[in-house]
Design a protein around this nucleic acid. Sequence first.
DNA 1: ATGAAAGCGCTAACAC
DNA 2: GTGTTAGCGCTTTCAT
Lengths: 331, 331
Amino acid sequence: MNARPTMQDVARLAGVSIKTVSRVVNNEPRVDPDTRARVQATIDELGFRRNEQARSLRPGQSSSLIGLVSGDLGNPFYSAIARGIEEVAYEHGHLLLTASSEEQPARERQLLETYLQHNVAGLIVAPTLDAAHTITPELLRGVPLVSVDRPVSDPDPFDTVLLDNRAGAYRAVTHLIHDGHTRIGIIDGNPRVYTGQERTAGYLNALRDAGLTPHPNLMIHGHHGAQHAEQATHQLLSQDQRPSAIFATNNRIATGVIRALHARRRTLAVASFDDFEFADVINLPLTLVSYDAMDLGRAAARRLLQRIQGDTSPPQRLTQPVTLRVPGEAH
Amino acid sequence: MNARPTMQDVARLAGVSIKTVSRVVNNEPRVDPDTRARVQATIDELGFRRNEQARSLRPGQSSSLIGLVSGDLGNPFYSAIARGIEEVAYEHGHLLLTASSEEQPARERQLLETYLQHNVAGLIVAPTLDAAHTITPELLRGVPLVSVDRPVSDPDPFDTVLLDNRAGAYRAVTHLIHDGHTRIGIIDGNPRVYTGQERTAGYLNALRDAGLTPHPNLMIHGHHGAQHAEQATHQLLSQDQRPSAIFATNNRIATGVIRALHARRRTLAVASFDDFEFADVINLPLTLVSYDAMDLGRAAARRLLQRIQGDTSPPQRLTQPVTLRVPGEAH
DNA sequence: ATGAAAGCGCTAACAC
DNA sequence: GTGTTAGCGCTTTCAT
């Protein structure tokens, strides 16, 4: 329980003033080498480390804290983003606070406020639906914010890092069409979610460019999570004009589709946004839109650090690339 | 870029002293209701929120920060733990800092030091190998630490939250034996890792209690990650006395085993520590040791909060339960 | 019930 | 090259 030593303690023991200790700690130039050595020795002896909290209390000195609010850190997609942010933040001497909004706007706002109370230097948020109403410049008071995966609103007052959702979906569906499929079903989640909207748009564009007409019976929306996607798959396969392939707009949905096909002992081409580890072991023809979620985090963190360092250019929208992966196919 | 208002600003505008504002903010009793209302109105008007950094600078006032160092936040196991910690921390008004040691002791120590510089109230760490040499009471200076998933050392000077590794492995292997298997292979990772040691011990106990003799050719150690486990599986299946079942000591290894079996188009009973989403869709007889990783985090956080609140009882070792899951079997 | 003043650990401005 | 002083935003005696 020995109390933590302060600069004052070091100064006393080394027989110098507190300012000299500060100079040594901060590697300022104008210090006598002998003095520096003596002070450093005392620092080591006492195990002194600067109190960052006191340091960043001074005006101008921003704290080295970055706050992240994502939907659910337990979701591998978000934790990969967090990992990417963490990596870049760490390289630049910043620390990362993490919390989950559970997709509730009120909680999201509460978390951002708490972060601001702790003097974070910047914020990264994977916004909930309706974030546009709660995340405002007045709330932020000049603290920079970068949104990731989804925009806060459109047009967006903040920097935003997104996946190329539309192109990814377009390519996956086009790949199915090239394989001869003409009746391609789509299962999407909540139609208000940005990523799903973009991916659905990509699907429609692919059909249109191939001269195919989208069929309402082949498009199921408003379903959420693997459970509902499983039902939706059964529904698609129980009707007269069955699809020969299904595009799932994310991996939760893909999981449901695969479960349903497994239950029916039925083989169908499945395309999906999001890659997954067991893709190679599933006995189905798969077409996956793959990407590195950590890169989303890295890009968001880099942009945020630029803002923290004073960049005041207009808000940017950064789009991260995606690739098509067909398990079992040579490349 | 309007500067953040301070208590001083509120005091001036409300025509009271800063101390009265402080009393209102902290809900202290001895304030005139009228004064309180007037101050509160000013607070709302200005959007004032207490600067937590300044607050916790006062001695005695511990910060509301908790620091987590895990091996890799991108690993779903660790991110689930983080999510559990976050949940409990949030309920108690604490915030969570996260970082990844990448299993490097030097980085782990560096991160802990940085956390301590930021005046964290407590620490949770999933220790690397060799953490015993770098995580010492001198480093911590009275800041409480709880280790999770693995002990820092044995006997452990810190509270520790573990899975019931031995019992889980014992039950899984016993289940295989009841199904008639007598030649059961085991593939483990780095033999220095605590969890692997315990799970291997459970495997050996199960064999012994069933009157079976462990065979060196059926035990493969020192392999790391899915890649090596794939090779190890091929090795096990290429020898004369082939196993009829394989126990994988974690899900990375299980992934490798399943990959290898898929490549060989071979069906074999597979038992594994760690459950996974696609277990139900894999066409293999599976026996899984399942548990809730979030609970590990919750338990660690609860223990840490007790320490932060002044508990000085001797270090505890908490063991979290595991269950057996056999996909496709009724329960 | 309210306020004045000191001080937490540090850095910036300005001596010397 | 080195030291003195003031002050960041807050809480805590101790007065009034």
